[in-house]
Design a protein around this nucleic acid. Structure first.
Lengths: 224, 224
DNA sequence: TAAACAACTACCCCAAAGGGCAAGGCAACA
DNA sequence: TGTTGCCTTGCCCTTTGGGGTAGTTGTTTA
């Protein structure tokens, strides 16, 4: 094993650390809000991007090569010129559904209900407390981590499952129903040895050794 | 098997049918609301109780012998004299957390946010459409059925799990980690035969035959 | 004090799982 | 036409699971 030491600037190092803590996409059409919140978030160790409109964020996001790899969330005002917070929510749900925190100046109950019903983490009503905000952000980051972790596991399981041939899938489906090899052989009208072989291949492809592990992997596949 | 035919009145039969469709506990301090909604719900085949205050419902509920066995939900106004909708929500969460739908005349964004954050199914803003209301009610009943079904399964699994002796639980824990009997025997420094015996007893008590079934039962126990 | 229960063990049995080795049939593809 | 992948099988072997019978020890309870 060789460790290569890549030279980095202090700036790059700081940014890497911030990304580790989490990235906040902040959208508000009031410049004062941005200039008040960005330093707050950066002080807390987050990496924060700010936008004056949902469009400017979405445009920037569209031309980006890869999705952000660490925990992140979007904090957006509901009332925005052009695409508003609720429309933004619809777009975000399409593309990965990152944790979204909505905020609003005037108490718009209808917007709040719609936003929360569609899965927003929270709906903050201005003016709000900085500590409350940070606490909500923290929750969002935790949720983001969990979601990403789970997404990785699910896609891993799906990739492995996709490697199975039709016959192999047929056989492990029956294994999961608690059937024993002999029963499966009779059901499919094939030799016991054949069942064992498919089962063995399927286990190898799925990267499992025991039935318990099999159940866990397949439970990830069969639930999206 | 003998079927006994119990004589019932037409009224009782109708009520039984309504209970099957679902029970709605309606709370609003405006009598006009109650007299408008109760017939609507009954027309739809629900069994509907109405109250002018949260207290009167909670009092009535306290002296009742058994919780309602079928699907049900609570539909309550937020602004009530005495105990308001949000306080009622706190109480309900304590006692079984049935599906709760909140409604409000004035657009109180703060209440809406708090209610939804604490798990209310929906927050309706008056005036609302009858069809919307019925659709939400229907969702709530579905959720109630699912919750009750799951609660039954979980409590069943817990009862069975509670029957296990310490040793038996130790052994099935290790079985769930994918360990084989020989490994478990070495770990606990007991004879292989003893492991088999405990395993056998545990399987009998849990009502399972295969490892796959074991995983399902225990997943219900280990997640509350 | 006897009974019930939990935990433990040895000896012995059979069924099932797991897998190595060798090999045939069939379809797609280069 | 040869290669490759998938599905198939038989023979034979070891390990593991599951369990019957019979017995010991210690603790709790009626």
């Amino acid at each position: 094993m060789s460790r290569t030491r890549v030279p980095v600037t202090l700036e790059e190092h700081k940014m890497a650390l911030s990304c580790l803590r989490g990235r906040i996409v902040l959208i508000d059409d009031y410049p004062e809000i941005l200039s008040a919140l960005v330093p707050l978030f950066e002080m807390e160790g987050y990496y924060c991007e700010s936008y004056l409109s949902a469009e400017s964020y979405l445009d920037y996001d569209a031309e980006r090569p890869l999705p952000f790899p660490g925990p992140w969330c979007v904090l957006s005002d509901v009332k925005l010129p052009g695409i508003d917070g609720l429309e933004l929510q619809r777009v975000l749900i399409e593309k990965g559904n990152p944790p979204l925190i909505l905020m609003s100046g005037n108490s718009g109950a209808l917007e709040a209900v719609e936003g929360l019903r569609k899965g927003a983490i929270d709906f903050l009503i201005k003016p709000f407390d900085a500590d409350d905000l940070l606490s909500v952000i923290s929750d969002a980051m935790i949720k983001s981590c969990q979601t990403q972790q789970e997404a990785r596991e699910v896609s891993n399981a799906n990739e492995r499952y996709a490697l199975l041939t039709t016959r192999e899938a047929e056989i492990i489906d029956r294994v999961l129903l608690g059937k024993i090899n002999r029963e499966i052989a009779e059901e499919l009208d094939i030799a016991l040895r054949t069942v064992k072989l498919h089962r063995q291949h399927a286990f190898e492809k799925l990267g499992v050794v025991k039935v318990v592990e099999l159940v866990k992997v397949i439970s990830l596949v069969k639930k999206d």
